[in-house]
Amino acid sequence: MTISTPSNSPPTDAASDPAIDLAVQDVVPESVDLAEEFESSGVREVMEELDKTLIGLAPVKQRIRETAALLLVDRARKRFGLAHSVPTLHMSFTGNPGTGKTTVALRMADLLHRLGYVRKGHLVTVTRDDLVGQYIGHTAPKTKDMIKKAMGGVLFIDEAYYLYRPENERDYGQEAIEILLQAMENDRDDLVVILAGYADRMDRFFNSNPGFRSRVAHHIDFPDYSDAELQQISELMVTEQNYEFSDKALTAMAEYINLRRKQSHFANARSIRNAIDRMRLRQANRLFQANAGPVGRKDLITLEEGDVRASRVFTGGLDSDAKPILPSAED
């Protein structure tokens, strides 16, 4: 389990907490300026942040924009006293590993917080192991514990389908599912649940658990990144860590991405991150072993072609018997 808090969330004092703002509205306004709302609620900031830090994912961003619009309008309607019900905010994020689901969940938590739909805006990320116990009576407290920690924020259940194991009729996952369903219904004001995982498995999961299907209103599909997007992502990651590719390394990286995708255990951006970590290691070893006098700034920040091409991906991938630098499942 991990708990993340939004890094740039607004202060939660009464004056600026949108939830409290709504509570004290007793005068019906003449009109509502949606553009101004977009600005003042901080939604624009979140959307910009999303655009800036996340490459690609156009359909995801579009869905988030739509959700934000819905919630903004919903808020405006409330001020006019127009009939409204608390919208169902539970979501499912489907897609392959490394397609940005957790990152977007963090932004989503921030967004919901700024719009006043959750009070704190923190994200609690869990998997089956955090929710399901090994003995009788072990599961309910574990699941409830996680729900308590997530109250006021977002509970992100990664690979949610592992909760459901029809092959074992005494599996304790079912108990966790029931408690989660209850919380998703009764604590809608305090808790948003996001279920995440591979698209096909999530489909099967929803089909066998209609309770979840009926409580999840927003489905967002995360497509795989294109080669060009992964190339961009690799450059962004390298820059963030104060490195840069040489021109030849850049070409090699493009080849690497193309090859890597065809091999097993490909995990989009996550595979790229891991590859870069290993390239840094090779670069360091190269600098150290070359032992060619003092090294300058340029040497320290440049990843060379050789640092990329030394990967086993170029020699047949995971089955290759090339000697690894690091024991690793992927390289």
Binding site: I147, K148, K149, D190, L191
Partner: peptide
């Protein structure tokens, strides 16, 4: 109750 962010979690207990 350690690591709780919001009062609602405590009120459940």
């Amino acid at each position: 109750l350690f690591d709780i962010a919001d009062a609602a979690g405590v009120m459940m207990e």
